[in-house]
Write a protein that binds this DNA or RNA. Structure first.
Lengths: 230, 230
DNA sequence: CGCGAGCTTGACGTTGTTCAACTAGAGTGG
DNA sequence: CCACTCTAGTTGAACAACGTCAAGCTCGCG
């Protein structure tokens, strides 16, 4: 049961966003008194695109997907591990969620009142600066994604996905993931069948061993090379 | 000379970012004393991906492209009209430019010291909030782009580009643009030949008239419909 | 043992790129 | 003013990449 082991590795609970270290004791008290902790089972919807974002979400535990819904097609924007905010794009814009989020695994989510967050940013520029940093980092990742999508073909996109999971989400060369082939395919923007074929090819040439929902990366340099030249 | 007329429309010079309205008189004085105004001719590079971002750029006049360079392939991230910041992603991250920018038309750029900007954000939370707003809006546009790239085929991507230019850049249904077919193709992430064909088709069915570097949109609803269903 | 969902595989069709030929227009020199 | 050239743009045909369809497989579960 590697899967359970790995999931336990990710099962640590994160009390607060690290940037709340910039808050005063009094502000932390406000957070403690007003915050709502909600538990979501795997598969449940955490927030819904287009609805009013009365709260910003902080993922204390679990793994979620952030995705855009449109008519028939869904686009998975990113995978949110514990410790990440969800819904920051609602801040100082139109106060709605610009994406939906759903739990991959059981999740513990801390709801932080949007107006409270705004007022903290006004009173506490360090917090604002840190949020700017977060937004910028996510923007930079978006740019990578745009590049990947528009310039790389299937092996390159698949490599990008594997490297992203390995480096950003699981911090390991060997991990188990909770998503189906369908969701993996969406993550790499390809059909389920193409995903299946690229997995087969990569298995064959020995750069990875991916069976079921477990993966071991054997030749990361090769993946990086494939990622580079498309 | 429609081209000249349209370019004159866009030729207004913007003194300061509107968010500098949040600065105190003293801070504005600091800006005035330290700022550098640089003039770039069409085609010149304004900032170079990977270099140290000692300054954040504010485009006071002209039109620029923001793009990512990689080995052989370039990706145009966005078109920056007068009034836009360039290089905000360097703030509170690794202080380097994450993209290059080049002038499409002659440009007037105001160089704002990064450390000054940071200190203003610390002292002036409203400025920080406004920058968060800007970053969020650009993030939302990135998401649209990712969706467009991963879910839409050529007519849809072309429609998206035309609508983007019409609504976000030129605010008109009839405008002239300074970029070549090659750059248009990059903007819509397709080959030059595919672009040529989709232009021919759209011209034929009457939804637009695009000749040379001038375009008139006749049936915006049709473009929106094509954009929607890919 | 049989069922069904998720996954895999091959055959085929569609979409879009590449290659190559061609055209139009702008600049150049005689 | 006319050939010449050069570049940007267009067009058609071949080809590659990828998605779709349909069939078969696997494995957990009743």
């Amino acid at each position: 049961m590697t899967q359970n082991l790995d999931q336990e590795n990710n099962n640590k609970t994160i009390q607060y966003p690290e940037c709340f270290g910039f808050l005063s004791n009094k502000q932390l008290e406000i957070v403690n008194n007003s915050r709502l902790d909600i538990f979501y089972r795997a598969g449940e919807t955490i927030c819904k695109q287009g609805t009013f974002a009365s709260h910003i979400l902080f993922l204390r535990k679990g793994l979620a997907k952030v995705y855009i819904e449109s008519k028939d097609k869904n686009l998975i924007l990113s995978i949110a591990p514990a410790g990440q905010f969800i819904g920051l794009t609602a801040l100082f814009t139109d106060s709605t969620f610009h994406y939906s989020a759903a739990a991959y695994e059981d999740c513990e989510v801390c709801l932080l009142d949007s107006n409270m967050m705004k007022s903290f940013i006004f009173k506490n520029p360090k917090l604002g600066a840190d949020i700017i940093r977060k937004l910028n980092e996510s923007t930079i990742r978006s740019y990578d994604r745009i590049f990947s999508l528009s310039k790389k073909n299937i092996p390159g996109r698949f490599s990008d996905l594997i490297l992203y999971l390995s480096e950003k989400i699981y911090q390991s060369d060997s991990f188990s993931f909770p998503f189906s082939r369908k969701e993996m395919a969406e993550l790499a923007s390809m059909s389920i069948e193409s995903l299946s074929r690229v997995i087969r090819d990569f298995n064959r040439d020995g750069s990875i061993t991916l069976k079921g929902k477990n993966i071991e990366i054997h030749d990361k340099d090769k993946l990086k090379k494939i990622s580079l030249n498309g």
